[in-house]
């Protein structure tokens, strides 16, 4: 998700968050510092800080608290990325060598653990028990989601409910908690906190579904990885589940992945072509649209302000993402 021009008014706060992030990862060991800094400087969408900031603007903004929450959430995300790259044996992230590739698994493990520790050390500057209860619960859920994703790899017999539960834990919860914690720092009433949480959750679901669609419809250069890479890794996503209702596709899928490590580029291309010729992409977009509608509905009763307008624009932007 790129930062559309409508977010420009957040630039000053986002720059401050960026500076705090940089400060947070200044480790003593030079390689640890360098690895963390490289990861940070590789960029990233910073969508969690954006959601924290926007949600806080429905109440009385406490910028110090907002910064603390935003920095911790982004650090948690960064720590996850470092470990994910070891799990996925990834060599590149945002076009740069991963920490795993550059320094090996051991250093990647130490760096991920270090960054997560910094995130928790940072967030405990806040003494609101509800913040810690909500965030810690999310962290556990996200871990379970990642564990289930590994467990469900190449499991062609899973159902759509399993998929939704997985993407909820994998993506939606961290966005939802970003909105919730932002709202909490601003002292919003529970009803409004819940609405913003719901917005984040629905946006996260929609975003992940579109990401899973783009895995088949976008080009390698747009994705920064080969098309169909998620499927090649064994991730059974919504388009695949829908396409499997087509007997032909299901047969070819099972046949192709009888020996997952031996799947060729041509076999993948033929499988992707077959998937695109089913109604799976269209139906997946429809589901994503439904989540977006729910996101809009969650915003409906919130007071009208610039932040609400921006949240609506983000939802529209997500809905428009196409290859």
């Amino acid at each position: 998700m790129k930062l559309p021009k409508t977010y420009n008014y957040l630039k000053k706060e986002l720059d401050q968050i960026e500076a705090s992030l940089m400060e947070a990862i200044q480790a003593e060991h030079p390689v640890l510092r360098e690895a963390s800094t490289q990861l940070l400087q590789a960029g990233g969408k910073r969508i969690r800080p954006v959601f924290v900031l926007l949600s806080s603007q429905f109440g009385s903004v406490n910028l110090e608290q907002v910064k603390t929450v935003a920095v911790s959430l982004e650090l948690i995300h960064m720590a996850t990325l470092v470990h994910d790259d070891v799990i996925d044996n990834a060599e590149l992230r945002r076009g740069k060598p991963t920490i795993k590739k550059q320094y090996g698994n051991k250093v990647a493990m130490y760096t991920g653990d270090y960054i997560l520790a910094r995130a928790l050390e940072n967030i405990t500057q806040l003494h609101n028990p509800m913040i810690h209860k909500a965030l810690s619960d999310t962290l556990v859920e996200v871990s379970i989601g990642e564990i289930e994703q590994i467990k469900d790899k190449f499991n062609w017999d899973q159902n759509i409910r399993t998929y939704f539960r997985r993407i909820k834990r994998k993506t939606a919860l961290l966005i939802a908690i970003s909105c919730k914690l932002g709202a909490m720092t601003a002292g919003l009433p529970k009803k409004e906190i819940d609405k913003l949480y719901q917005y984040g959750y629905y946006i996260g679901m929609s975003y992940q579904i579109i990401d899973d669609i783009l895995d088949f419809t976008a080009s390698s250069s747009q994705l920064g990885k080969p098309a169909g890479n998620d499927l090649l890794q064994g991730n059974v996503t919504l388009p695949v589940l829908f396409a499997m209702e087509d007997h032909n596709f299901q047969q070819q899928l099972r046949q192709t992945f009888e020996y997952p490590e031996a799947v060729t580029k041509d076999e993948m291309k033929s499988l992707i072509d077959l998937l695109i010729n089913t109604d799976a992409i269209e139906r997946s977009y429809q589901i994503s649209e439904r989540y977006l509608e729910k996101a809009f509905n969650a915003l409906r009763d919130l007071p009208h302000n610039k932040a609400k307008l921006t949240l609506e624009q983000i939802a529209k932007y997500i809905g428009k993402r196409r290859a």
Binding site: I87, D113, L120, H127, H132, K133, S136, L139
Partner: peptide, 25 residues
């Protein structure tokens, strides 16, 4: 790897539950 991350989340969860924030730090 994920087990380690899960147990790290769990220690935070347990301590957040009893509001021992200083000990989390």
């Amino acid at each position: 790897i994920l087990a380690g991350d899960y147990y790290s989340g769990l220690y935070y969860y347990l301590l957040a539950e009893i509001e021992e924030h200083d000990f989390i730090t």
